[in-house]
C-alpha cells in the first residue's frame, strides 16, 4: 500500500509539556484515515503538524517523500496547494459570499480567467449540495451548510489530500451522516487521500478505511476498522464501549493538588 504521509519519531511540546511523544505513523494514499482519541490526546495538534502549521521539537513528516518539517515557508506554501482543509468552525470569511469564499484560493493561486473560476465555483457548490447558494453569506447558512461550504472551499484547488478537523462537531445526526456520505463520495470519485480527526464513533464506523488511535500523545493503534473492532487493548475497548475514565486520586495527592503544592 502506497503512503501519502509518513510521520517518523514526532515529538512536540507546548511549553514544557510533551504533547506528542515520539509518534510514528503512515497514512495510506487514496483511503480515508481517521485519527481518533479522547479530548486532549493530541489529535488536533498532530493535524496542525501534518499541514505544517506547527513545527515539531523533533521528528519528520514526509509528504510524497519530502520532509515538510525542514521546509522554508515558500516551499511549504507550494506543498499546501495540494492540501484542502476543513476547519472545525468551517472558518469562512463572513464578509464574503459563499461563492467568493470558494473562489478565493483559486484567485490567489492561479491565473485562471474569472469566467472559468465562476464555473468551477458552481461545480464545487453543486458537489456539496449547495447549488444556488453562492450569493448567500455565511451568516445566512445553517451549521451543516457552513460545513459543506467549507468543504467546497477546501476542494477549490482540487487537492490531493483533504483534512477534516471534527467535521461532525455540533451537527445533528442526520446532517452529520450526510457529511460522512460526502466524504465517502470524495474518496471514491476523486481518489483523494482523506484524513479525518474525530471522536464520533458513528462517523468512524461509516467512513474509516484505516484508523490511527492516539492516547495521551502516543499511538496506541493503527490498522483497519475491523482490526480496531477486534482489538483487546483496554483503552480502545473503553473508547468503543463509551466507558468513563476512573479517577484514581488518593487523598494525599488530592490535598496537594487543591492546596497548590
Amino acid at each position: 500500500m502506497e503512503n501519502a504521509i509518513e510521520v517518523v519519531g514526532l515529538v512536540t511540546h507546548y511549553g514544557d509539556r510533551e504533547i506528542l511523544k515520539n509518534i510514528s505513523l503512515s497514512i495510506p494514499k487514496g483511503k480515508t484515515t481517521v485519527i481518533l482519541g479522547g479530548s486532549g490526546c493530541g489529535k488536533s495538534t498532530l493535524l496542525r503538524h501534518l499541514i505544517g502549521l506547527l513545527k515539531p521539537t523533533r521528528g519528520s513528516i514526509l509528504i510524497n517523500g519530502r520532509d515538510i518539517t525542514v521546509m522554508k515557508e515558500s516551499e511549504l506554501n507550494e506543498v499546501r496547494k495540494k492540501f484542502g482543509m476543513l476547519f472545525q468552525g468551517a472558518a469562512l470569511l463572513n464578509s464574503l459570499s459563499i461563492a467568493d469564499n470558494v473562489a478565493l484560493p483559486v484567485k490567489e493561486h492561479t491565473r485562471l480567467e474569472d469566467s472559468t473560476i465562476q464555473i468551477m465555483v458552481r461545480m464545487k457548490l453543486d458537489l456539496v449540495g449547495l447549488s444556488g447558494f453562492g450569493g448567500f453569506f455565511p451568516s445566512q447558512l445553517s451549521g451543516g451548510m457552513k460545513k459543506r461550504a467549507g468543504i467546497a472551499r477546501a476542494m477549490a484547488l482540487d487537492p490531493e489530500i483533504i483534512f477534516f478537523d471534527e467535521p461532525s462537531a455540533g451537527l445533528d445526526p442526520v446532517t452529520a451522516a450526510g457529511l460522512d456520505e460526502l466524504i465517502l463520495k470524495l474518496r471514491d470519485v476523486f481518489k483523494m487521500t482523506i484524513v479525518v480527526v474525530t471522536h464520533e464513533l458513528m462517523s468512524i464506523f461509516m467512513i474509516a478505511d484505516y484508523v490511527i488511535m492516539l492516547d495521551a500523545g502516543s499511538v496506541i493503534f493503527s490498522g483497519t476498522l475491523e482490526e480496531l473492532k477486534a482489538s483487546g487493548h483496554p483503552r480502545i475497548k473503553m473508547f468503543l464501549d463509551r466507558q468513563a475514565e476512573n479517577e484514581n486520586y488518593n487523598p494525599e495527592d488530592y490535598l496537594k493538588i487543591i492546596a497548590g503544592e
Binding site: 485562471l112 472559468t116 464555473i119
Partner: peptide, 11 residues
C-alpha cells in the same frame, strides 16, 4: 483533468 479543465470545456 481537474475542475479547471472541465470548467474550460463548459465555457
Amino acid at each position: 483533468i481537474d475542475s479547471s479543465g472541465i470548467a474550460t470545456f463548459v465555457e
